[in-house]
């Protein structure tokens, strides 16, 4: 079931360093898409990982449908993540498993489908993205864009209740960008909550309901897209949001 995700007064620092994220509070309801917009290196991916419970905040808490995430048992946390689709820029795959086994690993682990069911769903996605020839290849033999496509398939195979997208259209060709946009919109219609970091103006305008801007680890704007003043820098195709209030 899609759930509401809430971050309450969360701060985060790596290994006792300075706070990278400072007192972040926001929520994402089912069917809602929140876009995080900020310059490179300002903690967008970190904030996304905090939302997915992959990092532990030094202060504040992550709530899933009102329940504190850190209070859940390890098994409950993992089961929750199994139902999330997480797409990160790094497109990390398990190095000693081939593409098919990488995609099959979580499905086999949770054993909710038969081996035939797993094969058919994976093969359908591989065919759709023209990746069938690399099904037996190890990740080291793949180019970055192919790894990103495999990572996208994994996101779609697992994600049901909530999706996290970290710069999904960066380095993607137009066809792949179109597919990502379509899937984000389809999941939105299905009622899944989504958080995406992006500098892609079109994707932002098409999909986001709310926008959050970060500056120096602090939230400078969090609210509806329509209320955010927006200046698009078309020359470098990066998007800058300036909140009228600040």
């Amino acid at each position: 079931m899609p759930f509401k995700l809430e971050l309450r007064d969360v701060s985060f620092a790596y290994d006792g360093g300075e706070n990278l994220i400072e007192s972040a509070s926001f929520s994402v309801c089912p069917g809602e898409v929140l876009a995080i917009v900020a310059p490179i290196g300002t903690g967008k991916s970190t904030l996304l990982k905090l939302c997915a419970g992959l990092l532990t905040p030094v202060k504040g808490e992550l709530l899933i449908d009102g329940k504190v995430f850190s209070d859940l048992s390890m098994i409950e946390q993992n089961e929750l993540r199994y139902r999330m689709g997480l797409y990160f820029q790094e497109a990390v795959l398990i190095a000693n498993l081939n593409v098919f086994d990488n995609l099959a690993l979580p499905l086999r682990y949770y054993g909710e489908t038969t081996e035939a069911g797993i094969s058919s769903s994976i093969n359908a996605w591989l065919e759709r993205l023209n990746l069938a020839p690399v099904a037996e290849s190890l990740p080291a033999a793949l180019s970055t864009d192919v790894r990103q496509k495999v990572s996208f398939i994994r996101t779609m195979l697992l994600g049901r209740d909530f999706f996290f997208w970290d710069e999904p259209t960066q380095n993607a060709d137009s066809e792949f960008t179109g597919l990502i946009e379509a899937e984000i919109l389809q999941q939105k219609r299905k009622g899944a909550g989504q958080i995406l970091t992006t500098q892609d103006r079109e994707l932002l305008l098409k999909s986001a309901d709310k926008v959050l801007t970060l500056d120096g680890g602090r939230i400078t704007y969090y609210g509806p897209l329509k209320d955010a003043g927006m200046v698009a820098d078309f020359r470098c195709k990066r998007l800058t949001l300036i909140n009228r209030k600040y």
Binding site: R81, V92, L93
Partner: peptide, 19 residues
Amino acid sequence: YMMVNHEIQALEMMGINPM
């Protein structure tokens, strides 16, 4: 290598406990 390559985090992302 799994730590540096973020593979351990990738397992967590898939809901698989590295332990």
